[in-house]
Write a protein that binds this DNA or RNA. Structure first.
Length: 260
DNA sequence: ATTCTTGTTGAATG
DNA sequence: GCATTCAACAAGAA
């Protein structure tokens, strides 16, 4: 379930493999993921090169030397594989062939991923009404975004229109590290608590991104390592519990995360 | 076989 | 209208 840190990793992978190569053709083995027609995508990318990529929230935007950009969303199971192999990996849903005979495969077993053609990075961001990227968020802006909001803190953290990049897993982690119950209503949180949440957004995302890049493990003090009902809390003598917040499975510790 | 999982979208609600 | 909540959707694992 790629959230911001995983997409950052995909960006690094693509940047080191698939930039600055002429595109020969594109294959579309699975039309369902396409948000624009294969013809339009092929036309926009034929003989183009990817110049750079930019991440916004959970999306990866490919900028070309032409007018259009190609945008990927990874759904639950999407990823890239770059190789010179003729045989596509299982569940390849879109294949970009470069003129040097290498290929970039968009592999997505559950077909929850999406591919868009857009006029540019800013256009795409606006079209999808995406909020500020979680890595670019300043404390002042975060405080203002929460001002006057109703509802639970977890829903707000996951709302891509408010902050882009945080999903189910890492919203739980941020709130666990902040010792705040996911169902806490935003209105009841103190300035200190909101400040703590802000601090942990940066901390958690940076930490997770680093471990993804290195292929290492998260610290034992992370909820992510103990995300199962009845597990011992790594920070107090409580147990991990499971509940639902806006329809999503939500793990928290009943000992150190008290509801407000 | 059925239930559960996910993020986004758009509909329903207040 | 607005903010907020919720169901639908897709495929696969258990």
């Amino acid at each position: 379930m790629p959230e911001l840190p995983e997409v950052s990793y995909f960006k690094k992978y693509v940047d080191s493999t698939a930039l600055h190569k002429k595109i020969a053709k594109i294959e579309f083995p699975e039309k369902k993921i396409l948000q624009d027609s294969p013809q339009a995508i092929s036309r926009a990318l034929k003989d183009a090169e990817f110049k750079s990529t930019r991440r916004i929230g959970k999306y990866l935007v490919f900028e070309t030397d032409q007018d259009k950009v190609l945008v990927f969303h990874f759904g639950m199971t999407g990823k890239f594989e770059y190789s010179h192999e003729a045989e596509p990996p299982d569940h390849s849903r879109l294949i970009i062939h470069f003129k040097d005979n290498s290929k970039l495969f968009f592999v997505c077993p559950r077909k929850f991923g999406k591919v868009y053609l857009a006029n540019g990075f800013e256009d795409f961001k606006k079209e999808h009404k995406l909020g500020t990227d979680a890595m670019d968020l300043k404390k002042k802006e975060f405080m203002e975004l929460l001002d006057g909001k109703k509802g639970s803190i977890k829903s707000a953290l996951m709302d891509q229109h408010i902050i882009a990049g945080i999903g189910n897993l890492y919203s739980d982690e941020v709130l666990f590290q902040s010792k705040i119950h996911p169902k806490s209503s935003i209105a009841k949180l103190s300035e200190e608590e909101k400040g703590e949440i802000y601090k942990n957004i940066g901390k958690v995302l940076e930490r997770v991104t680093k471990t993804r890049m290195e292929g290492s493990k998260l610290p034992d003090s992370y909820l992510t390592r103990h995300r199962e009902e009845g597990e011992d809390c790594p920070s107090c003598d409580g147990k991990i519990k499971l509940t639902k917040v806006s329809g999503r499975s939500t793990y928290y510790c009943s000992g150190c995360q008290k509801e407000k």
